[in-house]
Amino acid sequence: MSYVIKTNQLSKAYKGKEVVTNVNMKVKKGEIYGFLGPNGAGKTTIMKMITNLVKPTSGEIELFGEKLTNTSYELLKRMGSIIEYPVFYDRLTARENLELHCEYMGYYDKRAIDSALDLVKLKDIDNKSVKEFSLGMKQRLAIARAIITKPELLILDEPINGLDPVGIKELRDLFHMLCREYGITMLVSSHILGEMEQIADTIGVINEGKLIKEVSMDEIREQNTDYVELSVRNVKKAFYVLDEVLHLTNFKVVDASRFRIYDTSISQSEISKTLILNGVMIEEINKKNHSLEDYFLTLLNGGGISA
């Protein structure tokens, strides 16, 4: 297995307090690795250590099979990144900002600027200064800057912040294209679980500075269980019908009005019919399955998920 990023017992402390603790993560070549965790979990700190913006207190980082050091300039040239809020020369245009970036990166393919702006849908704004850009436009420009030198590794910290649903879908398609067609490996953090579910090949869940789980999305999908979610007015009566009339054993009460029924031997229509015939008023009934959000929240709450 070829890994683009490997960390070994990676830790970081500020003023004696650890914010990242013994993280061992592995990002495979050519995949999109989704980094999930609540605010303050340590995602950005780890990304800063991988890009050499912050030095680890202990542990090691390998990039492209080589140990990252203070003088790993050639390794860093193979990367593109957005860490936290992107900063530009506000009085310059998008093109002028990218030209400056190419200058200090020693990259002189002028066609790459047109290509990058086109990919992020910013091609026809040559006369507009960046100070006039919306947050979403700045986010797009940051991604253009990150990909313009055709890096082998992209590290993107909350890249879809500030984008509307159309913009999010466009970037989702762009990420897939960069990964599949250009072979770019991506480490992407986000708090939007539904989007990460559609983007990532592998998920790393981090909480309180510790990597709780690394698991492929395929494994999560295999564990997903279809169930019927039922909302009723009379929970006690519904419980009686499910238990004593339908003889179901695999169901649970979620809250004061909802059940989840995991028994696949009985149809949704049969459940509805039996409840109604026995005087149970149904507010809502839907077939669902466990999502990445369910998986994520269960892990954070200390649930025992095996993979």
Rank of each mutant, 00 (worst) to 15 (best):
A144Y: 12
G106K: 07
K150L: 07
T93K: 01
G106P: 04
T149R: 06
L122W: 10
P159D: 01
K169E: 15
L92A: 06
L100I: 15
K123H: 07
F175P: 11
F133H: 08
R111V: 05
F133K: 07
D126S: 07
M105I: 06
D164F: 04
L171G: 06
D124C: 04
L100A: 10
L153V: 01
E99V: 04
I148K: 08
S129I: 14
G136E: 09
Y89M: 08
L117R: 05
I147H: 09
P159Y: 11
D118Q: 15
V166R: 15
L156F: 01
G167S: 03
A144T: 13
A144D: 04
L117N: 05
R111S: 13
L117H: 10
F88Q: 02
I160T: 11
E132P: 14
F133T: 09
H101W: 04
L156E: 07
I125P: 00
S134G: 08
H176W: 06
D118Y: 11
A142Y: 07
I143P: 03
R95C: 00
A112I: 10
D157G: 05
D90R: 08
P159N: 01
L153P: 09
A116P: 09
K110T: 09
S115P: 04
L98Y: 02
E103W: 00
I160W: 07
L174V: 03
R91G: 04
